[in-house]
Structure formats: structure tokens, C-alpha cells
Design a protein around this nucleic acid. Structure first.
Lengths: 342, 342
DNA sequence: TTGTATGCGTTATCAA
DNA sequence: TTGATAACGCATACAA
């Protein structure tokens, strides 16, 4: 490993001068700068990140506290967070957090001087991890939102706007009987997971505002429950002509079960899904109309919010909401026979 | 931040003694050890990772060089690699690699003292990244395999055994006309991606060995190509009674298109998929019979192989192949009318 | 068994 | 504009 000292010697300057040119931290005459750069090039010098971290008390590492769950798609988020971090000279470490030692693990990360800040995913409405971070005065940003948000940097999906848009799109087509299908997370570690809660609230608001008829169906991840979603729908909300689903398995089950009951999608029943992976939508027949989750935008925004905080930009908290974008498929159409459709 | 020196002072020992108990690196009398541990507890001391890394010349960080691709599911692998690393006192950093600066980026990682070793995913048959790593004498392990493997630590899916098992399972049911559906990656950045190549070879071998009739269909990711997979199949291999698919989109397309042509799955056509995400299999109707990729095992094995290398266990290279495990669904059955089925 | 002292490769402070 | 030099927090060879 080539050290700064070696560069300094060969360039016949002091080690500090090398540091100045490497970090652009003090003015250096063009000639010496050039000479130093040349030697750096020749020797293939790269500054040692650990030494740098030790001396500057900044690791330039962001930890992504990251849930050990299988069933969601975090790819986009993680990928973009890592890329954004790298662009700003930071690095993203995956920090698998095991539920038993949350309290210590999470702060030791910072206290041990390993990471400068923390990115937290899959935030619950009341999340003890957030409490720990605040208490430890650790810089952090959330992907998702807790209930209490004052002064907290976060980025999240704008469920309100997303659902409102879906309902609006449905309403424009003439739908008046709309059902929301949600994951039922009761009894799972994700029981306090916010998205279904916010979606349901937004759904009720949007329905009420337009004077439509809305129903909500909660389906667990039990295979039988998923397989029975069409029956559940037809029993609990028989008038439904359009479905908003935030439950991927249920969406697919509907797509295959409805036609068997003589209900064609989209002719007799429209289906739109929220915050699904793009990959899934393209695979179905008909292709699902999807309101795609803004994983990439959120990953980048979260990393940048955290970095801004770390670099001392002490503005107001970054609080970003991004709505899902409609990715049209072929699972949505006007209702078959609506007397009051325009 | 509490330092070792502070602990030493309060415990009235020297800083080295503290180091000895913290690292278990030299014998210490039970009493002083106890005293030191007590002070550590009181003060909430944690050793600083950066200082430790600098002094010991070991960062205890593994970099996961990781492809910026959307369409595969790496969750299981990344998750398990991160967990395994953590269990051994290492950490996993995501290192987004952009194709332009592969050569330098990859070695600077090690030379800059940032990571101790590298984990490489999505390995091509001839992968320049591997060449760079070897040349830089950087410790690494592959998930996947290059063509040349001597002395290289790697873990990979055992395509040979997996395909052989699928064919065997099909043959036992009486199928004699089997078609392999693959991704056509020609023209994409993944053109040299090994799995399809190995799968095809294994397929031809297995078919030949049993004297069966085999066909191979390559489908690109173009939506039209995917949508037309059923037609392609019926034209190119009309006798087919069983399909092995390593193309998720095509699998789903088949599942929905075949019934429309009066071909019931699994009564008239069996479908099994290879190395698919478990999550997908459960969502289809009928549920897909899947030979599930061993992502978790591979992630762990790769991390542990690399760590073993780093810690100086200079044995022969770790070369692990794990076959996919059959996850039965309801998309496989005996062929409808085979005169020679027993 | 414990302590002293040096070095790891930078950054940063202070002089020159 | 440059150069000494003292941290940074810990590991470790060597001494006691």
C-alpha cells in the first residue's frame, strides 16, 4: 500500500502538502500540485479510508438497518441508496438487525465509530428503533414514517395522493363501487407496519369525498385466504366493479380466479395494484395496471437527506413524499354497464 | 465516545491490559479481567472500529460487488451473506459497480484499505472483474462461476444436478417430450451470463442419457416474445408434454396462455421452473412446481469461504455447488395419454 | 501477568 | 504557500 509519506518523499514536499492537494483543503501552487498529482498517479496512491476515518472522525459509511424479511421488494430502494451514497463519497453497509438486541446494536453502530449515520427501512407506526436512535443522538433518516414526525428526516410513499389518483382514475371511467384489498398483517412482526393503515385511511377519505361506495377487504398471507380472495370479494362486496389492491398475492389470485367465475378482467372487473414491483406487473395476463412504488427516488432521497444532515446542513427536516406513478397495463376498463356512467 | 485509555485509567490498569481482555489476546488474571469488564460495562465502552482497523490492518469489511440490475432476485443471497458476515465479526458493504471504471474501482476497494475481501455476484463465463481481482491479489469469492476455476473460491447453483432431477422427476411420471425454456440474453449486458448456458448443457445431457426427446426454446425479455411463448412452443415443439422453464416471465405467460388454447396445466402440460423466487411460485394458479434457488445457502457459503481465506485458512479452494430444492406446486402431473407410461 | 512505547496513515493545528 | 507535529484510538513487540 502506497502511503502519503511515500508520495511526499518522491514529490519532495511535506506530507501535509500532499494532504492539501488530495483533499483540496488549502491552496497549493499549481506547480507543486501538478508534481504531487503526477507522483500520485505514478505510484498509484489512494488514501487509506480507515486512517482518514480515524483522523477525521468521519467514517463516510451509512448503515442501512435492514429488515430480515423475505416478502417485500427492497431492491430498488437499496440499490439507489447505495448509488447515491457512493456519489457523495459515502458507502452503504447492510446491517442485519436481529430483534433481540435492537437497543444496543443500533447505537453501538454509531458509538463504535463505524457509521456516520443510519438509514431505517420498514418503519413501524411506533418504532422502538427510532426512539433508540433519537436517544443516542444518532443521525438517521427514515424510509417510511412513524406516527410522531416533528424534526425527523424521512421519505415515504405518498399513499394519500396515490390512492386519491387511483380512485379518481376509476371514477373517471365510471366506477362507483370500489373495493380495497389489503394485506392483513395482524399477528406478524409487521403488525404495526404503516402502509396498509395509511392506504386504508386514504381510501376511505377519497371514497367519501366523491360519494362513492367503498369496501375494504383484508387478506392474510395464508395461502387459503389468498386463494379464497375472489369468493371473499363476491360475498362481502358483490357490487364491486373495480379493485385497488395492495396485496400482490391476492392480485394474482384475483386475476386467475375471477375469470373462472365468468368475470372477465377488465371487462367485468377492473384491477389496479399499488406499490407493486414493476417486474410483477409485466408478468400477468392481462398485464396489471400498477401504481409503481417510487423505490429508486426514495432510496436516493433518503441517502441524500441523511448525508445533508451529516454534513451540517442544518435546515428543516427533509420530509419527502412521493406518489406512485401509474404504469398502465390492461387490467382496467370502464365498468360494464353503469346506468349512471357519463 | 469512550476510549480504551479512559477504561484503563478508571480500572487502574494499562491500556494494553484493556486491549488484552477485550480481544482475548493474552492471559489476564481473573480479578483484573473482572475489574476491566466492569468498567467497560459502566462506561459503555466499545472499541472503535476504525482505529482497530488501522492498527490491525484489517477492516473486517467485505465488499459485495453488486450488479445494478433490476430483474433478478438477490434478496436471499445478500441477506444471508450479510448475516453470515456479521456472525463472524465482519460487515457487508454494498459496492455498486459501474461498468466504466471496473478496473480501478474494484482494486482500489482493497488497496485503499477499505475492505478485506470481495464477494462477486452475477459472474460471467469470462469475467474481467475476476481477472482484475486476481491481478490485484485481492481476496475474493464468487457467487457463480467463470470458465476457468482452478484455485478460485466459489459457490454456485448446481445446474447439472438440478436439471437432472427435474428430468428424472418428469421421466418418472412418464413424460418423454420435454422442452426447456430459457432467457435469451443475447445483446444484453448479461450476454455472457452462465446459468442459461449451463442449464442448457445439463438439459441436453440429461435428455440424451435417458433417450428422451428434448427441445430448447430461447425467449428474450421483449414483452411480445414473452407473450408469444405458447405459440412458439406449439410450433417448435408440438409434442411437448412437460416444460422446464428458467424464465419467470415466460412461465407465467405459459400458465395463462396455454389454457386459452385448450391446454390445461397440469393435465395436458406440466411446467416446472428452476431457480425462481419462492415468492412467485405461490402466487400463480395453479401454484408452480418450482426448483427453488438456494440463495440463502449460497450467500452464507460465499461469505464464509471468503472469511476463511482472509483468516489464513489456506486449504484448497472452497468450491460449493448446491442444487435447487423441489418446492412442489400443482403444475406437474403425468402426461395425459402416453401409450408407454406404465 | 502487566506496562511502555511505537506505529498504523491520515487530518488538522500552528508556525514559519 | 508550505512544513512540523500532535492527535485519532487501538494493536502489538518488547520490557519488566
Amino acid at each position: 500500500m502506497v502511503t502519503m509519506q511515500q508520495v511526499a518523499d518522491k514529490a519532495k514536499v511535506s506530507i501535509s502538502t500532499v494532504s492539501f492537494v488530495v483533499n483540496n483543503t488549502k491552496p497549493v501552487t499549481p506547480e507543486t500540485r501538478e508534481r504531487v498529482l503526477q507522483v500520485i498517479e505514478e505510484l498509484g496512491y489512494r488514501r487509506n479510508r480507515m486512517a482518514r476515518a480515524l483522523a477525521s472522525r468521519k467514517s463516510h459509511i451509512l448503515a442501512l438497518i435492514y429488515p430480515m424479511l423475505d416478502h417485500r421488494n427492497h431492491h430498488a430502494f437499496i440499490e439507489s441508496a447505495a448509488t447515491a451514497a457512493e456519489e457523495h463519497g459515502y458507502n452503504l453497509v447492510l446491517w442485519p438487525l436481529h430483534s433481540d438486541n435492537v437497543s444496543t446494536e443500533i447505537t453501538s453502530l454509531i458509538e463504535a465509530g463505524f457509521a456516520d449515520g443510519v438509514l431505517l427501512m420498514e418503519v413501524q407506526l411506533d418504532d422502538e428503533r427510532v426512539a433508540h436512535l433519537q436517544q443516542a443522538a444518532a443521525p438517521f433518516a427514515l424510509i417510511g414514517r412513524t406516527r410522531e414526525l416533528s424534526g425527523i428526516d424521512y421519505v415515504d410513499i405518498d399513499f394519500e395522493r396515490t390512492v386519491a389518483t387511483v380512485i379518481e382514475d376509476f371514477a373517471k371511467l365510471g366506477h362507483r363501487d370500489i373495493t380495497l384489498v389489503l394485506e392483513d398483517l395482524g399477528g406478524t412482526p409487521l403488525a404495526g407496519y404503516a402502509p396498509p393503515v395509511r392506504t386504508e385511511e386514504a381510501f376511505r377519505d377519497a371514497i367519501a369525498e366523491r360519494g362513492l361506495n367503498g369496501a375494504v377487504i383484508r387478506i392474510s398471507h395464508d395461502p387459503d385466504a389468498v386463494a379464497g380472495v375472489a369468493d371473499t370479494l363476491l360475498v362481502q362486496a358483490p357490487a364491486t366493479t373495480a379493485i385497488v389492491s395492495q396485496h400482490d398475492a391476492a392480485s394474482l389470485a384475483l386475476l386467475s380466479a375471477l375469470p373462472r367465475r365468468g368475470i372477465d378482467v377488465p371487462r367485468d372487473m377492473s384491477i389496479a395494484t399499488i406499490a407493486t414491483a414493476t417486474s410483477l406487473a409485466a408478468l400477468t395476463q392481462p398485464p396489471l395496471t400498477t401504481y409503481v412504488g417510487p423505490g429508486h427516488e426514495l432510496g436516493r432521497a433518503a441517502a441524500e437527506a441523511l448525508i445533508a444532515r451529516l454534513e451540517g446542513r442544518n435546515g428543516p427536516a427533509t420530509q419527502v413524499l412521493v406518489a406512485c406513478r401509474c404504469h398502465p397495463g390492461a387490467s382496467v376498463a370502464p365498468p360494464r354497464a353503469t346506468p349512471d356512467a357519463r
